[in-house]
């Protein structure tokens, strides 16, 4: 009984997960000098940003800072806007998705997207999820795939008895989870979420946030949000963009990118601190 070792040995549990070290993680995306312009005016300028596998990365910043434009550049959604022009590179697992011979449809299969307003197809719940699978020829075990996607989106129990009913009969929160199910049914690698909860009530919002925490085990998630506290709650990494004013108007720039607790407790840049504390916007 004379040494400390003999005294009441206790299990030393790891109380918190070992702090994630982003640099040890595999980067799914790496943007290099990414500038997206509409016509001649850059919306977001010269962004270098790695996005890491199986993490939730949030992009925050004031209106007009280019955060949605940045997000949409990650799966070539901006291609659909005729005046949009992309300079620099978006490396996805090392390959520039804007390179020659890259099929944007294949890009969007691997990098799915959920939008601000739930936008289900005017079809049945089942067909909303099955649609992408049919188009991509993933027809083996269609029922099983649909069930898995709806389960992962935490919607299965609520809809399993009315799969053939129209998707518009669902509540807004359920519709958004259906859109998430539709996005993950085709087994993407990344899911981009553009203000996925801004049209939802607080309960539905919390469900989406809980879901993101679950889904990151399988997918890499990138979320754009106006709601700073939402970023604080759900994200592992947070990127702060702001609007840099110029004579010709202004364009978005990346100010700071770090682990979320750092951004919300001790940001390096005064502009970040001003934004997260609500003193400047």
């Amino acid at each position: 009984m004379d040494t400390m070792g003999a005294v009441a040995p206790i299990e030393i549990a790891q109380a918190r997960e070992a702090p994630l070290s982003a640099s040890d993680r595999e980067a799914v995306f790496e943007t290099r000098g990414l500038t997206v312009s509409y016509g001649k005016a850059p919306a977001v300028s010269n962004v270098d940003l790695p996005i890491y596998r199986n993490l939730v990365t949030a992009i925050i910043g004031p209106s007009g800072c280019g955060k949605s434009t940045f997000l949409r550049s990650l799966n070539r959604m901006n291609d659909l806007i005729p005046s949009a022009k992309v300079d620099g590179e978006v490396l996805y697992h090392g390959q520039n998705i804007y390179g020659d011979g890259v099929d944007p449809v294949e890009v969007r299969r691997r990098i799915g997207m959920v939008f601000q307003k739930p936008n289900p197809f005017p079809k049945s719940i089942y067909d909303n999820v099955a649609w992408g699978l049919r188009v991509l020829g993933m027809k083996d075990d269609l029922d099983g795939r649909v069930e898995r996607a709806l389960t992962q989106a935490a919607l299965w129990d609520e809809v399993k008895n009315r799969l053939k009913k129209g998707a518009f009969g669902l509540s807004g929160g359920q519709q958004q989870r259906l859109c998430l199910a539709r996005a993950i049914a085709v087994e993407p690698d990344v899911v981009l979420l553009d203000e996925p909860a801004s049209a939802l009530d607080p309960i539905a919002t919390t469900k989406i946030e809980d879901l993101m925490h679950e889904l990151k085990n399988e997918y890499t998630l990138v979320i754009v949000t106006h709601n700073m506290q939402q970023a604080a709650r759900v994200a592992d990494m947070t990127a702060f963009f702001t609007l840099e004013r110029t004579e010709s108007g202004g364009h978005g720039v990346l100010v700071e990118y770090d682990e979320t607790p750092k951004i919300f407790t001790q940001p390096d840049d005064k502009r970040t601190e001003g934004y997260v504390t609500g003193r400047f916007g």
Binding site: A13, A15, R16, T206, K207, E209, D210, H213, R233
Partner: peptide, 15 residues
Amino acid sequence: MRITFQEELEQVEAA
């Protein structure tokens, strides 16, 4: 709901 938050609270309390 808010499972992550509840887990974090529990982790601090366990510590």
